[in-house]
């Protein structure tokens, strides 16, 4: 099996490198100010989706604070204006669902939205009610993607999600983990249950997923959502004061955040990265990372090695 995965990955790497080269050429030849953001294909359906999404962990948990709710709505407005689509939340994230719903209502329910939610409850019987409550908080007719959060009661919840998908109440199923937890079980669930999406932590420092999870996703045709691309801001805070190296310009990165996102998105198995932010300028910067050239395999290694050395 590893040989098969390697073969598939090599093919994907080659096509990604070609895409990067084409992007670089396009970038050099064109003076268009706002290139269309990179899209990726969801393997299960062939649907295209913008490669940079929006996370809501911590950043959108602002309770009833009217000022901060409006700030989140402004972030969402900039996100959709910049071509974004996927917003990801969870019942675990405090008021993030309600704040997302507030922003969507203020923006008139943007048609581009790709809603990604999670079921996070021990009792399988309570799953449907929790998902319905989440839907009510978002104010959407249905979720595009429903994921089992951190594999909690995953067997029963995946049965429920499969039934909901068959009934057209969700479009995709998924499972999530973070910070490299339970990768062995995660791999087994991917292998046996074949969800449409997986969500994992992956960035230039946390690269455990490269060993088995990402190759398996590529092999099985499972879309990959990347959470914690900046390690909850720790990476960008740590790197922020340091000057970008010259070779960042080779891929058009003007900030560490963009360089990190480009590193993540250049992995051929990655579908969407979901950085979270409270700032409009940051959401624009994140979206811009998905345009222009992406690093090839050699440059990805240099980026990861350099960031790890700092």
């Amino acid at each position: 099996m590893p040989a098969t995965r390697r073969t598939i990955l090599k093919g994907l790497m080659a096509s990604a490198a070609m895409g990067a080269t084409a992007g670089a050429m396009t970038g050099a030849a064109s003076a268009q100010p706002a290139p269309a953001p990179l899209t990726r294909t969801i393997p299960a359906t062939g649907e295209a989706i913008p490669a940079v999404g929006l996370g809501t962990w911590i950043t959108f948990n602002v309770g009833d604070d009217p000022v901060l709710r409006d700030e989140c709505a402004a972030v969402m407005e900039a996100f959709f204006a910049g071509g974004g689509a996927m917003i990801d939340s969870s019942p675990m994230y405090g008021s993030s669902q309600a704040v997302t719903g507030y922003g969507l209502a203020r923006l008139g329910q943007p048609a581009a939205l790709f809603s990604a939610e999670k079921v996070w409850i021990s009792s399988p019987a309570a799953g449907p009610a929790q998902m319905e409550e989440s839907r009510r908080r978002w104010g959407v007719p249905r979720f595009d993607l429903m994921q089992v959060h951190n594999l909690l009661s995953w067997e029963a919840h995946l049965d429920t999600l499969a039934a909901m998908k068959a009934e057209g109440r969700i479009r995709y199923t998924g499972i999530t983990t973070s910070e490299g937890r339970r990768h062995d079980l995660f791999e087994r669930v991917m292998d046996t249950r074949r969800p449409d999406f997986i969500q994992i932590t992956y960035n230039p420092v946390d690269r455990e997923a490269e060993d088995r999870i990402l190759p398996l996703a590529a092999e099985r045709g499972i879309a990959v959502i990347v959470n914690r691309p900046f390690r909850q801001g720790e990476l960008t805070r740590r790197l922020g004061p340091r000057p970008l190296l010259d070779w960042a310009a080779e891929v058009g990165a003007v900030s560490w955040a963009q360089l990190i996102l480009k590193h993540i998105l250049a992995h051929p198995a990655v579908t969407v990265a979901i950085p979270a932010t409270t700032r409009v300028d940051h959401v624009r910067e994140n979206l811009a990372a998905a345009s222009g050239p992406l690093p090839d395999a050699a440059l990805r290694r240099r980026i990861a090695d350099h960031i790890a050395s700092l």
Partner: peptide, 8 residues
Amino acid sequence: FLLFSPRV
């Protein structure tokens, strides 16, 4: 386990 930012 911290679900919110210090600012919030």
